[in-house]
């Protein structure tokens, strides 16, 4: 990649425990251009923590260190908290897992999206409404004039997630981190939401980091895949070559997924005894 957007080198995230600090991300390195990168792994593999660490959102007592954390020529680690706020949302934004918990329940959808816009741009009031409606149309919400007046509890999960996407994309960021954007949604809606993210990302030439535990889904929507396990990248490959993956952990994950044409009597499971302490 000539046009490097994000360059991470030896990223570590640690949390204190009674027996000392435990690294949940252990020396992660990758570079990202304007492409789609998938991060896959089980719960607890540190994939979400990686996403948060890029935005410097690891809260105390958690701690993050990296040899290098460069975004578009800026060293994110050197930025002040104030400067960091200008990066979050405006340059890098993040879609969280569940729209039910990430939308403000006592604010109308229109106000929430407008807030995202007002925070990052100086813009005339009448233009705000127009931009919000335009954005809702872009995420294929029917009748946006009605939806802006609604509250989050009045919309379905799929719609809520599309509203989240609208909110995250309205300041026109360069990099979008999607942390399990569809695991709270139905299969039929899942495809719609991912197609939408895919389309917006491709059209605007953004970078995308898609974090998920669903290997096949990531393989479908990404160019490159990092497989994480216990805080480390165990395998990095092109999405096309996922079925050629060699690491036993990746193979185990792939085999554990039930197939549409299932003939196996029992699904192979990962041998956890090797690494589970509790």
């Amino acid at each position: 990649m000539t046009d490097t957007l994000l360059d991470v080198e030896n990223l570590r995230v640690s949390f204190p425990t009674p027996t000392g600090r435990v690294d949940v991300v252990k020396g992660l390195s990758f570079t990202l251009g304007r492409e789609r990168l998938g991060i896959v792994g089980e719960s607890g593999s540190g994939k979400s923590m990686t996403g948060r660490a890029i935005l410097r959102l690891i809260r105390s007592p958690g701690r993050q260190v990296a040899d290098k954390l460069m975004f578009d020529g800026n060293d994110l680690q050197a930025l002040s908290e104030r400067a960091m706020r200008k990066v979050r949302g405006a340059r890098i934004s993040m879609i969280m897992q569940d729209p039910k918990f990430s939308l403000n329940p006592v604010m109308t959808i229109g106000d929430q999206i407008a807030e995202a816009l007002k925070t990052h741009e100086r813009i005339a009031r009448k233009d705000i409404a127009a931009r919000v409606i335009e954005m809702l149309e872009a995420v294929r919400i029917n009748d946006p004039e009605r939806v802006v007046k609604m509250y989050p509890h009045e919309v379905s999960g799929g719609m809520g997630q599309r509203i989240m996407i609208a909110m995250m994309l309205i300041p026109q960021p360069d990099l979008l981190i999607a942390d399990e954007p569809t695991s709270a949604l139905d299969v039929s809606v899942q495809a719609q939401v991912l197609d939408l993210i895919d389309e917006l990302v491709t059209n605007k030439g953004m970078g995308l980091i898609l974090i998920s535990h669903d290997l096949n889904l990531v393989a479908r929507y990404c160019d490159r895949i990092l497989v994480m396990h216990a805080g480390e990248v165990v395998e990095s490959c092109d999405a096309r070559d996922l079925h050629k993956a060699t690491h036993p952990y990746t193979r185990g994950l792939l085999a554990a997924v039930p197939q549409m044409e299932e003939k196996r009597d029992e699904l192979p499971v990962l041998d956890r005894t090797a690494w589970s302490g509790t």
């Binding site: 535990h213 669903d214 290997l215 994950l253 997924v257 039930p258 029992e266 499971v269 990962l270």
Partner: peptide
């Protein structure tokens, strides 16, 4: 549940 855990639970149910 995760895919790997899903496999365990499905095997158990079966």
């Amino acid at each position: 549940l995760d895919v790997s855990v899903q496999a365990e639970i499905l095997n158990l149910l079966k």
